[in-house]
């Protein structure tokens, strides 16, 4: 039985179909979940995709963090279920308190749509376990508010706990200022929850799943969670 990925759609979400396409390429099944739903339809993994949920009024992700389905996502995450927030989904997870910190306006004050290099590091997560590329992942960003920010104690805790799982790096794997597309503290591109099962990232792995379109480096993240869930199912 294929692993079932629940893809949450809020009004204004726009990367849900790309995510469903990536899930299919990874050999899994995509299940669309509506923001007003209160249940997750028995999915194995939840993805909060990119977009502008509820128009990002007030702050990016702020209204979506109070949507009915978030209570179900919160319970799912508390029970150890894998949750991935991509771009706007990362902003929603931060606003919901499922991940620490916040995403501020890009340092450039401009929307940035470009390729980035990402180093996979830190503790294993359902989305990065087994990913040990010799070269940085090539995955694009597409956001105006992606500058990761948190207070110094939180940043130190993330670093010490191995919870920075993706970092913007140059072609040689160095986290330089030039490799940082938005001014994120410590070049942070993605972080994990304390338990490791909730991950938020600004880059879009679902848009890097076919070499024809420039990169297939994102596909590994969908395959990783599928492999982990199938492994867990077999061991039960």
């Amino acid at each position: 039985m294929p692993v079932r990925f629940g893809i949450v759609v809020f009004p204004g979400t726009w990367s849900d179909r790309d995510c469903a396409h990536a899930v299919a390429l990874a050999g899994s099944e995509a299940v669309t979940l509506w923001h007003a739903d209160r249940e997750l339809a028995g999915v194995d993994c939840v993805i909060l995709p990119g977009g502008f949920a509820y128009g990002d009024y007030l702050r990016a992700g702020a209204i979506a963090a109070h949507a009915p389905i978030i209570a179900a996502v919160r319970s799912f995450a508390a029970a150890g279920g894998p949750v991935l927030g991509i771009c706007n989904g990362f902003q929603v997870l931060c606003e919901a308190g499922l991940l620490p910190g916040a995403l501020l306006r890009n340092r450039s004050l401009q929307f940035r749509c470009q390729w980035t290099g990402l180093r996979v590091e830190g503790r294993p997560t359902p989305f990065t376990a087994g990913l040990a590329p010799a070269t940085p992942l090539r995955i694009p960003i597409s956001h105006g508010e992606g500058r990761y920010h948190a207070d110094p104690d939180t940043i130190a805790g993330l670093e010490l706990g191995g919870r920075v799982v993706l970092r913007y790096v140059d072609a040689r794997g160095a986290a330089t200022p030039d490799a940082n597309p938005n001014g994120s503290l410590h070049n942070i591109a993605g972080i994990a929850s304390a338990a490791g099962n909730v991950v938020g990232m600004m880059p879009h792995p679902e848009r890097a799943c076919e070499a024809l379109l420039g990169s297939a480096d994102g596909l590994g993240m969908f395959r990783a969670v599928a492999a982990a869930r199938l492994g867990a199912a077999r061991s039960r």
């Binding site: 007030l58 702020a62 931060c94």
Partner: peptide, 8 residues
């Protein structure tokens, strides 16, 4: 709860 994000 909503109007202000205490992080920022």
């Amino acid at each position: 709860r909503l109007l202000c994000n205490g992080v920022i």
